[in-house]
Design a protein around this nucleic acid. Structure first.
Lengths: 216, 216
DNA sequence: TAAGATACAGACTGGCCGGTTCGTTTCTTG
DNA sequence: CAAGAAACGAACCGGCCAGTCTGTATCTTA
């Protein structure tokens, strides 16, 4: 049988870790944090449990790093979205964020949140990972606000609200199978965003039609 | 020693079940679904595991019934809120809903959602419980909309959006310790609600409240 | 008040799983 | 190429826990 080509230690490590992290995300999504075992992860990754325990000191450790892995990929995607913003509507941005969150990102979050709430060590490991992502989001919101006729501070609040709305909706999808309901909520929110957010293609000084009350 | 007063079977059952359901909610909130055992629940309730297994066929069963118990109590509270709505602002309603959700209701939900997502039997048991609650919410929203003088359909969407926003925010509180952030989101949302409710105030029909149906 | 029914108590068990340990293979370095 | 280091594989173990089962107490009913 064809032996694997000779690789440097660095390559072996990178590949194995990568496979394990991908497998972890896949399994978090498919089976959830409390229903997967380290043996499952190793199996899906196609390596032994020994390999897993060699690279990650605990289950919490590999999950934390897997989430970081995922969030960083998503951050890259979002920056690409911000790159290609010409002619995009706020509707499209909302749709994009919804697809992203409902398509797995927030479902994975929902899997580890209960653990984070009750396992302080795990929470301590996860906190900086989440902070990094939130900071990245703020940067992306700032970029989006540049394309619109509103102040960055307003964009921050509105887009963070958008994310929270979507989070709540995704959570509800688990126990509420009602696409029309979610469509109506998204449609309402898109309408609201359109009123305030004017994605601008030419004139850089488009003004908001309404004032938004920022922090109290 | 003072023996327990003689009780009918019905009383014994009701009391034991009630203690077990209360203990389940308490423990779901404090330790989470996957970190509590049926032995824990029995212990907190002050009964034996035998009593628990006598009244509930499985862990999923007792959790489902405990959640139903909690949701029905919350429904009563919300109807009381709707009763005493004179002179209340939308700000106060938002604050009430936030306190309710962040104070435990949605944290409990977050505990069982992962199980519901991956355990189809559990999900099947939980679905009607959640549906009942959603229907109750719709009825309450209808009452609120009559009070505020806006169209029921609009109130449905806005108040459901409010709930989803709050859900997303509560989820985020677990990994984001930043009260100012959440305050600013709530402040923004209150402002938005004020605008809409004021906007539709111009056709106020001050009719007496009537019973409303949850039907679409 | 006796017999059956219901409520409750507590021991047992079989499977699971994360962490540990140790042996083997692959790569690096001098 | 030899020796050490890193990567990996696999068996083992100790604790945990939901469900089961059997025995006992309390209540109902005829």
């Amino acid at each position: 049988m064809g032996k694997v080509a000779r690789r440097t230690q660095e390559q072996r490590t990178a590949e194995t870790r990568h496979r394990l992290l991908d497998a972890t995300i896949t399994l978090l999504l498919e089976r959830g944090y409390f229903r997967i075992t380290t043996a499952d992860i190793a199996s899906v990754a196609g390596v032994s449990r020994g390999a897993l325990t060699h690279h990650f000191v605990s289950k919490e450790d590999i999950v934390t790093q897997a989430v970081q892995h995922q969030l960083r990929k998503v951050t890259v995607d979002l920056h690409e979205l911000a790159d290609s913003l010409e002619g995009k509507s706020t509707d499209e941005i909302v749709d994009y964020l919804w697809e992203m969150m409902a398509g797995g990102l927030f479902l994975v979050t929902l899997e580890y949140l209960p653990e984070a709430r009750h396992n302080s060590e795990f929470k301590a490991q996860m906190t900086p990972v989440v902070k990094e992502f939130h900071a990245a989001l703020d940067a992306i919101w700032a970029r989006l606000s540049q394309h619109a006729g509103i102040k960055p501070s307003q964009a921050q609040v509105m887009l963070n609200a958008t994310m929270c709305l979507i989070r709540g909706m995704v959570a509800q999808t688990i126990v509420r199978d009602d696409p029309d309901y979610f469509r109506s909520l998204l449609a309402y929110w898109k309408g609201h965003l359109r009123e305030v957010f004017v994605l601008d293609r030419r004139s850089p000084q488009a003004r908001p039609r309404r004032k938004v009350s920022a922090a109290e």
